[in-house]
Write a protein that binds this DNA or RNA. Structure first.
Lengths: 126, 126
DNA sequence: AGATAATAGTTGTTTGTGCACTTAATGCAA
DNA sequence: TTGCATTAAGTGCACAAACAACTATTATCT
């Protein structure tokens, strides 16, 4: 693998990530009261259309288990998800989305996609 | 632009960024006592091969001005760079790399590239 | 069965980052 | 020159994230 390819790709990833994250934080935050991590968790649950274990979420969003635990705690406090102990394995916790959570996610989804589309478009034309 | 393209690209960026950042933090930290941001700043100065203004660095690394100010402060404390007030515009600050900084950067460079190469290779084969 | 290891999730602590604000210097207009 | 806006950089504060330590439950081994 070429050195220059590695450096260029990394530069692309860094710059895209920074601009998209920044824009998502602003837009999702201002318009829907959600952080990128909060949205991501809701999005995963909606995508799978079922309750998920913390660890399953851990595999999909790029957060440590402890960070994820706190994201879920914030979401629960905002009544967007509920936590229930799994009775097959009582160590585990299922996270379900509430109706309010579904609504909020549905509202935020177009914003999320629009921001990304904008960022990727800008990346091509600059 | 296709919705699916946007979602997939974003997923790629998120996952690559997370894995590379995590690995860089670990390897650069353990082996060279540098964070990714610290390395990035040193790398930019070496690349340009001259002292740079804080704001010039700001355009190249993806950090806020305040975060950058603190990175430079940490680097200065570690004697890897020096800060001198620009006498043309006395608001500005030049950041120069020290010999020790050059040495440390030269040591860390192969690690940095190797980590990225590894991450990108894994991404292709998984 | 009892002891030990392993796993799921939460909590304490530290650290890096962004935002808003401050300080200092420069540019510009009347 | 004076007054005011602008720009460069640093600082106080709040917050999210990672790491390590902890609790509770389950699996394993003798």
């Amino acid at each position: 693998m070429e050195e220059q390819y590695v450096v260029d790709t990394w530069q692309y990833v860094l710059s895209t990530h920074a601009r998209a994250m920044c824009a998502l934080e602003r837009e999702l935050g201002d318009r829907h009261g959600l952080g990128p991590s909060e949205f991501e968790v809701l999005d995963r649950i909606v995508l799978h259309d079922r309750k998920l274990r913390i660890q399953e979420l851990c595999d999909e969003v790029h957060l440590s288990q402890s960070a994820l635990s706190r994201v879920v705690a914030r979401l629960e406090k905002a009544s967007l998800v509920t936590r229930v102990v799994c009775d097959a394995d009582r160590r585990g916790v299922y996270v379900s989305i509430t109706d309010e959570g579904r609504t909020r996610h549905a509202e935020a989804l177009p914003t999320h996609r629009a921001v990304l589309k904008q960022v990727f478009t800008d990346a091509l034309t600059s």
